[in-house]
Design a protein around this nucleic acid. Structure first.
Lengths: 159, 159
DNA sequence: GATAATTATATTGTGCACAATATAAACGAT
DNA sequence: ATCGTTTATATTGTGCACAATATAATTATC
């Protein structure tokens, strides 16, 4: 078992660097549409099904309200979405696609292929890598909730 | 070729979500050491070789000065590193490990194993995944510099 | 049906990321 | 030596992420 790992041997760093690289590759494409990468993800969720609560969007993207609330307000200012508080439960804010947000669906259709092309991988390889990363994420998230290594004096300070 | 991809089929999202999940899993461990994940990465670089210029750190982590300058100042305030402007070339700021930063090397030794454990993968699988992701990053970065899809009206506005 | 507990969103504050720009030092060619 | 170019860092401004907390509405319990 190696003690002193090189930076490049750290899986955490590879994934962190890869995520930023993809985001940077997408940026010029998304700039043309006037949106950022997290905003694009929100649109992906809304394109699946035109209406979602903020909570549902957060669960889907694993983002909390501190991130989503201002992001969605910026998207409303750009008239991509509408924010409406539910009459039946006034705690819930319903996010729905505005016409401009619908239109972007067509214009953004080419975006996923940008990664496919530049990845130099075929669809089978991409699907396989995707499955591996999703499995890793799932395990990491459950390890996080177990708080494996931090039973002693971390979160438990609160008590 | 599928037109309408589900969010979970997007490799970009899987990697983005995985990166944040790992960062969140590390957070309680890093909190104990009083550092953040990007600060941990800077320390990994310095632990390899005690001294680096900001430029070298930036090249290693693929982060620019707008990110590193304030981050390194926070690390200096915490007495983890020292910042010294070179006498021989006063443009260059040399970053070196302070005693507190050296000490953390021991305390942080368990961190990489946290991901290994929670990943549920063996070393061979991790190395293989790591290589695939590094290869993807490399290709994405070179695609980005070619500006594949954006020859017309994006960056070329500058001209 | 008042009160406690839960739920959904919002707010605040800190720390990245990164584009765009500024500044200042070093270097190169004349 | 001087001027233009390059190089290294810093600054500014915007937009995430996320912890911690607040607020307000709903639901559950008695």
């Amino acid at each position: 078992m190696k003690e002193y790992l090189n930076l490049q041997d750290h899986l955490c760093f590879s994934i962190y660097a890869c995520s930023r690289a993809i985001s940077r590759m997408y940026r010029p494409l998304l700039n043309k549409l006037g949106i950022t990468y997290p905003q694009y993800l929100v649109l992906l969720v809304l394109w699946e099904k035109g209406e979602r609560s903020i909570k549902e969007i957060g669960e889907r993207l694993d983002l909390d309200s501190g991130t989503l609330t201002p992001l969605l307000k910026r998207m409303e200012e750009k008239q991509l979405i509408q924010r409406t508080r539910l009459k039946t439960d006034e705690r819930v804010v319903k996010i729905s696609l505005a016409p401009k947000g619908e239109v972007l669906h067509e214009e953004a259709a080419c975006i996923p292929s940008a990664l496919v092309e530049s990845s130099g991988m075929n669809i089978e390889e991409i699907v396989e890598l995707n499955e591996k990363i999703k499995a890793l994420t799932k395990r990491v998230l459950s390890a996080e909730s177990h708080n494996y290594f931090t039973k002693q004096d971390d979160d438990s300070i609160i008590e």
